[in-house]
Amino acid sequence: MQAKEVIARRVAQEFQDGYVVNLGIGLPTLVPRYLPAGMFITLQSENGFLGLAPLEGEPLPGVVNAGGQPCGLMPGAAMFDSAMSFALIRGGHVDVTVLGGLQVDEEGNLANWMVPGKMVPGMGGAMDLVTGARKVIVAMEHCTKEGEPRILDRCTLPLTAKGRVAMVITELAVFRITHGEFVLIEHAPGATVEDVRAKTKARFAVSDELKTMNLG
């Protein structure tokens, strides 16, 4: 199983029936594929609606996702303006947001919007989402392409938001951050705590109930 699929499958287990969810671009958009049968969630799209669905058939005027790509709408979808969209996001009306990350640190800080001197795309809606969603899940590959840890004692890149990350899910490990404590709660099948330590540059506690990720 590829890393992205492992991560998406594990993230899906965090959703509950009836949740309002905002998914970042890239890997997070894979998550709905792995929802348990019968579970219904509503996807929020920051450009102004609830009820995002996959595109079926021809693109329709004005129906695009937050990446500007044609998409579909669920029956019962609702459209609104950007102020309402971000009132939902900032006001705690989005149950979960799942975003990719460049770096996360042991204080629950996330950096995912710029690399000074290299990539300055702008924060778009990311800062509001990470600040306002009820639960922030970072879904990312454990290390960079060069093999460098992304989970650090302290983010070195400019932050998206401070102390807002509740969970970090990678292909190797699942961490929970509660009351400022960074705790390993699961590792990948076949991996050990030492494997996780070797690829993680943050201090973390190991849960008494440490489990192997269930990817079934």
Partner: peptide
């Protein structure tokens, strides 16, 4: 009257 997600920032 706006159309779908083409509303976004227009009303404000």
């Amino acid at each position: 009257v706006y159309e779908r997600a083409a509303r976004n920032f227009n009303p404000i």
